[in-house]
């Protein structure tokens, strides 16, 4: 490695800021990173307002406003390697669920009819306008590397930065969250879908075996499975596994319902229908990307219309 430090820019677009905090969560290891990396533009660590030229650029968040689009384009121009960092950057993330509603509905609900505040003005100055849709950044600029995760666990951040700096292949697997989970998948006798309000699931056994929906088997492991190992079912925050993304007939709901039906006495179609009715939750992290949105099996608009039709009746 040469003595000259590798220059790094980071910026956040439309996101919660958690990915940047995950960078700082490298703890002492960040000192190791700083041995060979010079951090320039980084909203949580430095006060650099412009975008100096850099070798690596990390972008977190998706494109939702004009500011986001501008920042993404400038970062692409100034950085040699762009990493789409975190689920929002890769798949559009949680706010991708905004696709289910129009921009006007969202503005109206947040600023006019919010049940917890009393404001009645839609902001028109200082903030850039909300775009029509949430766009993952690879539809705006070319992305060189993707690191999904909400946020990616520092284990993976360190591994990917280290491999980039050393010029080697990263040692990562494409396992699902189940690969890191400690629960035993047994064949259970659950007859109906349950949730944590109904019962506290036994921590020795898989959520699916006990009739709880858990997306672990359909989700890429970029987290080291903290949720299922601490009593909370996986919500799929790192996005779908590679086989779901590449195979047209596989989908989050078909994968989970197939496995859950094999582990319980619940019919596969019942689970599938349940997941369609709760699609905004089950597909929350990945629905904005074309990789999921363009799937022939993904009919979110129809599912939502069905549910809302039933409510209105």
């Amino acid at each position: 490695m040469s003595d000259e430090k590798i220059r790094l820019n980071t910026d956040w677009l439309c996101d919660c800021g958690g990915c940047h905090v995950a960078l700082v969560d490298l703890h002492e290891k960040i000192l190791q990173v700083l041995d060979s990396v010079e951090i320039q533009h980084c909203p949580v660590l430095t006060d650099v307002k412009d975008y100096p030229p850099a070798r690596i650029g990390i972008l977190t968040g998706s494109v939702r406003t004009e500011h986001d689009r501008h920042a993404a384009l400038v970062m692409r121009e100034k950085c040699e390697i762009i990493i789409a960092f975190g689920t929002c950057a890769v798949y559009g993330g949680l706010h991708g669920a905004g696709l289910a509603h129009s921009r006007e509905e969202i503005m109206e609900h947040v600023y006019r009819r919010s049940p917890t505040t009393k404001t009645d003005t839609i902001p028109d100055a200082e903030v850039s306008e909300l775009a029509k849709m949430v766009t993952p950044i690879d539809e705006v600029i070319d992305v060189d590397l993707y690191l999904p995760g909400c946020p990616p666990h520092p284990h993976f951040i360190f591994e990917s930065l280290a491999s980039l700096i050393e010029g080697r292949e990263p040692r990562v697997t494409q396992d699902s969250v189940c690969g890191r989970c400690k629960r035993q998948m047994i064949k259970g006798d659950a007859r109906e879908i349950r949730n944590t309000l109904d019962e506290v699931p036994d921590e020795r056994f898989c959520f699916l075996s006990q009739g709880h929906i858990c997306l672990g088997s359909a989700t890429l492991d970029r987290c080291l499975a903290p949720c299922p190992n601490h009593g909370i079912a996986c919500t799929g925050c790192a996005g779908p596994t590679m086989q779901i993304l590449t195979e047209p007939y596989l989908d989050i709901r078909t994968e989970v319902s197939d496995r859950m039906a094999r582990l319980t006495a619940i019919d596969e179609d019942i689970i599938k229908t349940y997941m369609e009715k709760t699609a905004k939750t089950q597909y929350a992290y990945a629905m904005a990307t074309k990789m999921i949105g363009n799937k022939p099996t993904f009919l979110i608009k129809k599912w939502i219309a069905d549910v809302e039709g039933q409510i209105n009746e």
Binding site: I83, D138, V143, D144, L145, Y146, L147, P148, F156, E159, S160, S163, P170, V172, Q174, M242, L245, T246, E247, P248, K290, M291, N294, K295
Partner: peptide, 15 residues
Amino acid sequence: FYRNLYFSRRMEKFL
């Protein structure tokens, strides 16, 4: 005989 080409092109870029 059918692949999601849009994604397959991006697949090797995943860390």
